[in-house]
Amino acid sequence: MNKHTTFLLDISRKRDYLYLLPAVVLVVGFFVTSIGYTVVLSFFSWDGVSEKVFIGVQNYTDIFNDNNFWISVANTVYWVVFSLLLNLVLPLVLAILIVQSVNSPLFKNIFYFPATLSGTVGGLIMVAMLSTYGIPQLFGLVGFEKMVRDWLSVPVVNTFVMIFMQTWRGIGVNLLLFIAGLRHLDRAPIEAAQIEGASRGWLYMKVIFPALSSTTKVVLLMSLVNSFKVFDIIWIMTKGGPYRSSETLALSMYIESFVRNNYGVGASVAILLTCIILIAAYFNLRNTFKSE
């Protein structure tokens, strides 16, 4: 190869990189630099107007000594554990029932439908529904007067109410995945087990659930990563209140930054949240790219 062709090859090779350029510029400009900026900002005290003051790790030590932070951590744990459980078990059970039902497309659409609504719309309808005008009144009718109150104003109860509401909206995609998984099961082992007279319970535990394990893993990891990020529904339903009782880390970060103007503290909460999510995301990624 003479010098001239190497040169041309070089140019065309460089030109290949141009295809990456627009995407890389936008992603680096918006996100990669943002990550660096937020890390740096978490070591500063800043109200967004006056000069930034470097304070080292004081934001972090302040957060760890702040009772509200630990309430927020506890709420985040509730969200993760319970929404994970509900988002795994409920769609699986419903999927098993739906494939055996008289009208599976109808049931599938009913349970998928809320997933097409935005968290904002879902939250707004729920707030109206849970106001004392709505569902709590039904409990009053059957004699539980104590329950006729604004559930969203009771600490801890409000978090669980919101977890249920998010489940209402959230199971749709998982349900479709499980239904697809059940429909594509390999029939041979199931038939073999049936011929040998296996009981239904045995059939599910030993044959069907293991065969669904790859779908289950996808659902589990996806729900795990998403459960840390829930924002819309909490912002709409309680704004983290009353008295910051229903904040999660995702909310605390927002409230510290954009409501209380403690950008440094907000940045540190964002960094802590990121560290937790990255651990979860690591398993998710490993699962996604297993084949490569």
């Binding site: 996100f31 990669v32 937020t38 900002l41 840390f228 927002y254 964002a270 949240l273 990121t274 990255l278």
Partner: peptide, 17 residues
């Protein structure tokens, strides 16, 4: 590098942007 945009929680981007 490009895919990392979805791995990190979106809250991280709010203040800088």
């Amino acid at each position: 590098l490009i895919y990392s945009g979805t791995i990190f929680p979106f809250q991280l981007y709010l203040i800088p942007v």
